[in-house]
Amino acid sequence: MTGGGGLQGEQFNRLFTLFMGITGFFYVLVIVGMLAGIAIRGRAAGTERGERLARTALLGWIAAVVLGLTVLTVGSYASERRVSAAIPARPPLEVQITANQWWWDITYKNAVPANELRTANELHLPVGVPVKVTLKSNDVIHSFWIPSLAGKQDLIPGRVNDLLLLPTRTGQFRGQCAEFCGTQHAHMALDVTVEPVASFRRWQQAQLAPAAPPSTPLAQAGHDLVMSQQCASCHAIAGTPASARFGPDLTHLASRRSIAAGTLPMTRGHLYAWIADPQGVKPGNNMPYIGFDSAKLHAVVAYLQGLK
């Protein structure tokens, strides 16, 4: 069963309850009928009264089955209608999610390319606004699943899938890859925040800004290292020369809630742990062990921490 944070989830729960109620009723009916049969059989077998009873029971049974199936059919049709009526053909918000081993690349589509927002491993959604989610994969099959909002949908390399979401309740939810995709499949989570429209807009504006320039000499040294070392061959930081797309976008890294797709909470210590040895934290992931000495490590972390 899914939690009720989204329209599909709620409808699903309602259908599930209906289904449980009707099947439970029939379960009890069969058992009661059987017990009654055993009790009556001995006394009424062969008599005219017994035969009348059997005929009535059969008719009652057929009527109950027809009624039960009708209620189920009407119920599922009605909830299908509710979902499709609530979501317009062209939802106002479109998000493209590309799965990679083992992280999520997130782009908020916009007709104006400059207003396209790119982030990673976190999804912010305005409450009550229908969202079209386009799903792609860069390597193997993954599956997109936010249990509180809706059911699963696969991300398949070379294909585009989509999913419609309508969050109905604000809160923090967890998304998770739901199709085994390699060693670090378990560490492929997605932080989902459903918030009021106004704060979503604020978040969007903040994310569209280029990266904050380094504010201390240490952070400046870190900036220079990130630009001149391996980091820039894999990561993009808007407003700097780093523009590669092999790893997650780091423009507003420090504003996220976790590191490496939910592997570690976002804290200074965990940033150190991640940069010092990503393979120790998440063995087999595609960010290599680089081997900074402590001075460089301090500088790089100081810079990353400033990327609010």
Binding site: D277, Q279, P283, N285, Y289, G291
Partner: peptide, 11 residues
């Protein structure tokens, strides 16, 4: 053997 990490480099 899957070696995801090369030998650490000296400082």
């Amino acid at each position: 053997e899957r070696q995801s990490r090369a030998q650490p480099v000296p400082e």
